[in-house]
Design a protein around this nucleic acid. Structure first.
Length: 474
DNA sequence: TCCAAGTCAATATG
DNA sequence: CATATTGACTTGGA
């Protein structure tokens, strides 16, 4: 019964552009003339109480499309203007930790790409922005926190505080920790730059590595399998996200007005809307150059660029590529160069802080043990690649080349079926940047896009296994 | 099972 | 101190 009505009012509440805050510089074009729906029921701060959570979810369910980018922008303004931190805001208003808030504010995903759960924080933020007392409330919280802190400092008694989890063992050896026996702490794996590089390279060749491949990678990098798996998951989704924000920014700029329903891509067959951009093609971004055209013509760009890819061909043909590049066979082994780490040695790190020692034996390490400087000094030309993934492998500018290798070498074996078509598709994209010798640094962006493209290709291939893919038009 | 999306929480950086 | 990054975990969908 009340549903329809309450829903409506709630919706309006959410939509409201936040009249209170004076920070609204840009001001939204749409001003709701409706006086605030004094529905009150408070602003339900957090799930703490428990009785409010529900309403939020309902709200999310009926919420109109929100401008996530705009919301985060305003939130950031308000927070900085009032010297309020993300931690406080996150914990108090969103019920999230500082890190999550930071991430959310820095890289909001477009509304239409968010799940119900993912929309929740944005609805909360909007609600908060609409609350005339938002800042004050937070300030109060801040004060209270400070007070509590001070109190604690002066008297360590603290009756209402369990005194944290510290205590306990008091003195641990801390230094040696000879045997891995205290799993309670888990050191938190920190991948070395070289390891990340190797993984990225592996990703570019195979965004979705098979279990077997993952095993190999793990072994060769001396990482736990789960770490490799997690890394791929995280990398994939983070790359995807990077593109999202581009999408948002680009969108908000060029085509502002118009109907507010950017979402609905409504692609006939593909709901996945992965299409979010096949634009991936590099957008040549001069370092920090502010210029850049935020046009949406990237597509044209893409096409143009793609054809320039012949340079790549040279690469393909070049036998430089250590063996199997084109004839891999069963043992798909890739070669990820460790990339010379500049001059500075490198040896040391090998023993990263993690103690990866799978239960039981294992020790397949063998060759890769400590390969860094040892072999490969420069022989590379031939032998090297054969086995270890991490070998220095410096046969040639691996850096650049490998970065845009995207051409899944042979591998016809794996995806047999749709592979062929996929190949053609790939050819369409073959980027290949010719000389990028200039700013070799910072191709990160390009790299990411390329990676994403590969990702997309992979999906297409998968989807293609069903029917004739030839239709794709980009 | 795999994957993606959200998060957490440790740690890096500023 | 604050904010940013990132490996791992959780949840929910095929």
């Amino acid at each position: 019964m009340s549903s329809s009505e309450s829903v409506k009012s709630l919706t309006e509440l959410v939509q409201q552009p936040c009249p209170a805050i004076e920070t609204s510089k840009d001001g939204k074009p749409q001003e709701s003339s409706e006086p605030p729906v004094s529905e009150s029921q408070s602003t339900t701060p957090l799930p703490l109480s428990g009785h409010s959570a529900l309403s939020i979810q309902e709200l999310v369910a009926v919420s109109p499309e929100l401008d996530t980018y705009g919301i985060t922008k305003r939130v950031k303004e308000v927070l900085t203007d009032n010297n309020l931190g993300q931690r406080l805001f996150g914990e108090t208003i969103l019920g999230l930790t500082q890190g999550s808030v930071s991430d959310l504010l820095a890289r909001p995903k477009p509304w239409h790409k968010l799940s119900l759960k993912g929309r929740e924080p944005f609805v909360r933020m909007q609600l908060w922005l609409n609350d005339p007392n938002n800042v004050e409330k937070l300030m109060d919280m801040k004060r209270m926190e400070k007070k509590a802190y001070m109190k604690r400092r002066h008297s360590s008694v603290s009756d209402s505080q369990p005194c944290e989890p510290s205590s306990v063992g008091i003195d641990y050896s801390q230094g040696a920790s000879p045997q891995p026996q205290h799993q309670l702490k888990k050191p938190r794996v920190v991948l070395a730059p070289e390891e990340k590089e190797a993984l990225k390279r592996a990703y570019q060749q195979k965004p979705y590595p098979s279990p077997k491949t993952i095993e190999e990678l793990a072994t060769q990098l001396n990482l736990k399998t789960s770490t490799v798996i997690n890394w791929f998951h995280n990398y994939r989704s983070r790359i995807r996200r990077e593109l999202f924000i581009e999408e948002i920014q680009a969108g908000s700029q060029s085509q502002a007005g118009s109907s507010d329903s950017p979402s609905a891509r409504s692609s006939r067959a593909v709901h996945s809307s992965e299409g979010d951009s096949c634009d991936g093609v590099d957008t040549e971004g001069p370092p920090e150059g502010k210029q850049s055209g935020l046009e949406v013509d990237e597509y044209s760009n893409a096409t143009t660029k793609s054809q320039g890819g012949q340079a790549e061909s040279a690469f393909e043909v070049g036998e430089e590529v250590p063996q199997d590049a084109r004839s891999s066979e069963k043992t798909e082994s890739f070669h990820l160069g460790m990339e010379s780490l500049e001059d500075t040695d490198d040896e040391g790190r090998l023993k990263a802080p993690r103690q990866s020692s799978p239960p039981g034996s294992q020790s397949s390490g063998e060759t890769l043990e400590t390969m860094p400087n040892s072999a490969t000094e420069e022989d590379a030309s031939t032998s090297a690649a054969s086995t270890s993934i991490l070998t220095g492998e410096s046969s040639f500018k691996s850096k650049e080349s490998s970065e845009k290798i995207l051409s899944v070498p042979s591998t016809s074996s794996t995806l047999a079926a749709g592979s062929q078509k996929a190949n053609s598709i790939q050819s369409l994209f073959s980027f290949s940047e010719v000389a990028s010798s200039k700013n070799t640094r910072d191709n990160t962006l390009r790299k990411k896009k390329a990676a994403n493209l590969n990702n997309i290709i992979h999906r297409l291939e998968k989807a293609a296994s069903r029917e004739e893919p030839v239709e794709w038009e980009f």
